[in-house]
C-alpha cells in the first residue's frame, strides 16, 4: 500500500496495538483531533479513549506516566508533539535509561517517545535536540528516512524493551507516498542500511540528511564519483560494523548532521572511525552540520543553516579528490 511517512508511522502503531493489548498511545490532542500534523490519525476511532489517551499539558508527568506504566509491563507510545519539548522530560528519560542497569536487570522500560522536529513546511518547532540523548546510556534513538523504514522502525521500537526516542522529521512527514509493506519488523533497532552503494566516498546520514545525501549522490554519479550512502536508521546505538566496513571500502567519509556541530551525535561516529579505521582513511573525516546557533526563523537563514544537496555534493567531491 502506498503511504506517506506519517501514515506509515500510524500504521505501524496500529498494527502493534492490534498485536499486543499492552500497547497504548498517549499525548496531547491525539484523540479526536488526531495529533499534531495527523500524527495519530485514526487511532482514536479504531481503539477508543482507553488506549488512545489524551493528556493535559504536563510533559514531565506525562513521561512519568509512560515510564511508570512501562515498568508494569505496558508498552506506552508517547507523542510529545515536538522535539523542542525534550528538555521537559529529560529527567524521566534519564531515569528510564538507567532503570534496567541500576535494578540489576530486573526493570524493563519499553517506552517509545515520539517527537516531530526538523526544518520543514511547518516552519516552527524545528530544533533538533536528539544529540543530548547520546549522553544517556540505556536509551535508543531511531531516525527513519522513508515510509517503509518509518513503519519497520516504529514496530521495532514498540517491541524494544528499552526507552526509545523516535524522531519524525517534519520535512519527510507528508512528502509523498511510497510503497509500504505492513510486515512484522524485519530488523530490530540497530542495523544501518546501505541506501546506495559506491566505491569512492562514504556518506553517513539519517532522516532528511539521507534523502539529501541520495540526491547529492546522483549529482556526483554524473561526474563519475561513486558515493556510498549509509543510512544509520538507529542513531543510538549506531551500527559501527556497517560504518567501519564502508570506510574500509572507500577510505573517505563524510558525516551529515541536522543537530548543531557542537556535541553532535555524529561526533561519536567520527571519533570511532579515527580510533578503529585510521589505517583505512585516505582523507580526513569530514562533517557537515549546522553551526552552533539556535535554529533560525527566517527562511533564508534556515536554508543556509542546514546542509543541502549542493553543499553535501561539494563536500563529498572535495573528499573524493583529496590527496595528502
Amino acid at each position: 500500500m502506498r503511504m506517506t511517512f506519517q501514515q506509515a508511522v500510524v500504521a505501524a502503531i496500529e498494527d502493534e496495538m492490534e498485536a499486543d493489548a499492552g500497547v497504548f498511545v498517549m499525548g496531547q490532542d491525539i484523540g479526536r483531533f488526531g495529533g499534531p500534523l495527523r500524527s495519530n490519525a485514526g487511532l482514536f476511532e479504531r481503539f477508543g479513549a482507553e488506549r488512545v489517551i489524551d493528556m493535559p499539558m504536563s510533559e514531565g508527568t506525562m513521561a512519568g506516566l509512560a515510564v511508570g506504566a512501562a515498568l508494569q509491563g505496558k508498552r506506552p507510545v508517547l507523542d510529545l508533539m515536538f522535539g523542542e519539548f525534550l528538555a521537559l522530560v529529560m529527567q524521566q528519560f534519564l531515569d528510564a535509561g538507567a532503570m534496567h542497569y541500576y535494578s540489576g536487570g530486573a526493570a524493563r522500560v519499553p517506552f517509545v517517545l515520539r517527537v516531530k522536529y526538523g526544518i520543514g513546511p511547518f516552519h516552527g518547532h524545528a530544533y533538533d535536540h536528539h544529540s543530548w540523548l547520546m549522553g544517556v546510556p540505556g536509551v535508543k534513538i531511531a531516525a527513519p528516512s522513508t515510509p517503509q523504514d518509518a513503519y519497520d522502525t516504529m514496530r521495532a521500537a514498540v517491541r524494544d524493551d528499552n526507552p526509545v526516542l523516535f524522531l519524525e522529521h517534519m520535512a519527510l512527514y507528508h512528502a509523498g507516498r511510497a510503497e509500504v509493506e505492513r510486515r512484522a519488523p524485519p530488523l530490530p533497532l540497530g542495523p544501518a542500511v546501505r541506501a546506495r552503494e559506491g566505491a569512492d566516498v562514504t556518506v553517513v546520514a539519517s532522516a532528511l540528511m539521507t534523502k539529501r545525501a541520495l540526491k547529492a549522490a546522483e549529482t556526483l554519479d554524473a561526474e563519475g564519483i561513486e558515493a556510498e550512502v549509509i543510512d544509520l536508521r538507529t542513531i543510538a546505538p549506531w551500527d559501527e560494523e556497517a560504518v567501519l566496513a564502508s570506510v574500509h571500502r572507500t577510505g573517505r567519509v563524510l558525516l551529515l548532521s541536522e543537530a548543531i556541530s557542537t556535541g553532535a551525535s555524529i561526533n561519536d561516529v567520527a571519533a570511532t572511525i579515527a580510533e578503529k579505521a585510521f589505517d583505512a582513511l585516505e582523507a580526513p573525516v569530514a562533517r557537515l552540520a549546522p553551526p552552533p546557533i539556535p535554529t533560525p526563523f527566517a527562511r533564508e537563514l534556515e536554508r543556509a543553516y542546514l546542509p543541502d544537496e549542493t553543499r553535501i555534493a561539494a563536500a563529498a567531491r572535495a573528499l573524493a579528490r583529496w590527496t595528502a
Binding site: 499539558m57 510533559e59 523542542e84 519539548f85 528538555a87 516552527g124 530544533y127 533560525p296 526563523f297
Partner: peptide, 26 residues
C-alpha cells in the same frame, strides 16, 4: 530579532517583554 526568531510569540526585551525563546509554554 533581525529575522533570527519570530515576533508573533516573542516580543522585544527592550520593551520589557519576555516571550517564548523555545517552543515550550510555561
Amino acid at each position: 530579532h533581525l529575522g533570527r526568531h519570530r515576533s508573533d510569540v516573542c516580543g522585544p526585551p527592550e520593551h520589557g517583554i519576555i516571550g517564548l525563546y523555545g517552543g515550550s509554554l510555561g
